[in-house]
Design a protein around this nucleic acid. Structure first.
Lengths: 108, 108
DNA sequence: ATGAAAGTACGATGATCGTCAAACTTTGAT
DNA sequence: ATCAAAGTTTGACGATCATCGTACTTTCAT
């Protein structure tokens, strides 16, 4: 069934800060979040500019999903990723914006 | 000599975001930063409410210092810690405030 | 039906990191 | 001079984590 391929998503209001920070401290995952933020649109897993293997990428997407940072749904064989920035911003005001902005600083 | 006991401090304008986030992702270190922020005053190493051994605490203070988050200076045998919040805020606007605020959320 | 496309799941591995105990250093008080 | 107070330094140990290759699953196009 289609729904079986959709993984579980946490309620952002119950996700601990610790988990969100652990998700965002990894450079690859932070890059994924930044690309989603800058694109202001959904991006499928294969559509990101990251240089890790497929299985590693899957791992990173799961960490981000379980931290409530992204939402995933299928379109055909592609898994689309949506940034849950509104929900995250309600829970931890200013956090995502600050990190995405900081990631754009010249001398990163 | 007295000056020999003062460790080196980085220029915050050259500290990478990665290093700052790695410093803040540890709960003990984040607690130290939060306590400094809330106290709005210097606190000596032994004056924090943390439950790790002395040597572990030293390790955490070094990580925070090298990330440009705190400044340390000696007063007698005590090492005083100052939060470098102004400098950090210039480099990564809103980041420290967002994390400290998030740390105060009820369901952390 | 068959094959390609897009990811996922499953170990395994190597590196990093938080933690501690024990020994040491520096300063201040007696 | 001596001793306690406050931290630091130095290994050592466990646990966690990012990474990969391989095998597997699901969907879509031919």
């Amino acid at each position: 069934m289609v729904a079986d391929r959709i993984p579980e998503h946490p309620d952002v209001r119950t996700v601990p800060l610790q988990q969100v920070l652990e998700a965002l401290v990894d450079p690859v995952r932070r890059s994924i979040v930044t690309q989603l933020h800058d694109a202001d649109a959904d991006i499928k897993c294969g559509g990101f500019n990251i240089s890790v293997s497929n299985s590693t990428a899957t791992h990173h997407f799961r960490v981000l999903r379980e931290a409530g940072l992204i939402r995933q749904h299928y379109v055909g064989t592609s898994r689309m990723n949506t940034l849950r920035d509104n929900e995250i911003n309600k829970r931890f005001p200013g956090l995502l914006e600050a990190i995405v902005t900081a990631d754009r600083v010249a001398t990163n």
